[in-house]
Amino acid sequence: MYILQALDIHKKFDSLKVLKGVSLQVEKGQVIAIIGPSGSGKSTFLRCLNHLETIDQGEIAIEGEFMARNGPDGFAIYSPEKEIDQIRRKMGMVFQNFNLFPHKSVLENLMLAPMLVKQADKAAAEDKARQLLEKVGLSPKANNYPFELSGGQQQRVAIARALAMEPDIMCFDEPTSALDPELTGEVLQVMKDLASEHMTMIVVTHEIGFAREVADRVIFMDEGLIVEEGTAEDVIVNPYHERTRAFLSKVLMAR
């Protein structure tokens, strides 16, 4: 059984077709990197998996449970909200702009959701939060506020915050794109550590090096479709498709 299955996803914003039939199957423990030019629909696709956007057509199932599936008229019908809430809890999300809660300390950022959503008691939530901060190397910052942290540190807190809900799948939406170049390394390192612990990860990224090194499978998207997918070796080192080659040469040239 796939841990995540998305089938023939279509999505449009008004009349603009952003996704034109994207499918993805992820096995437990896999790391998937989705690359592609901006406007290719890769972020939208990730956000659809997480129910931050709703799809027009297609099917999404997490651990065998349907979040949405096509109805008789060919348009997607979503499961009842309560079921969706349960299904979504299996996924954590890390945003490009971190989206930490600025009025909460680092520790409170990590404790908030477990206490409110999982009714964890305070001591347990704090224990867990401190463990996770240690894991992302930010124990000394527990009582600081997000504005006192660098971008890289904020993103590491955001990763820890998502992990605090003990998700089975972690989604990353361009996690290093808002960072100064010298700060991307620390975030990528945390993600590599996660991958080595066999966390299932779906990463939308411009970090070709990271994709090559960590991803089990690389997906190249353009204009709302998957153009090419395969191992990092296939897609990044020996791309078959002309568009993939053009994109990669542009991205790698910029380095």
Binding site: N50, R89, M93, N97, N99, F101, A113, L116, V117, A162
Partner: peptide, 19 residues
């Protein structure tokens, strides 16, 4: 982004507004 972060963490609308 604040709403989205709260949303993906599983907070409901009331919890999001309040907290």
């Amino acid at each position: 982004g604040q709403y989205e972060a709260a949303d993906v963490l599983g907070l409901n609308r009331f919890q999001t507004m309040k907290n």
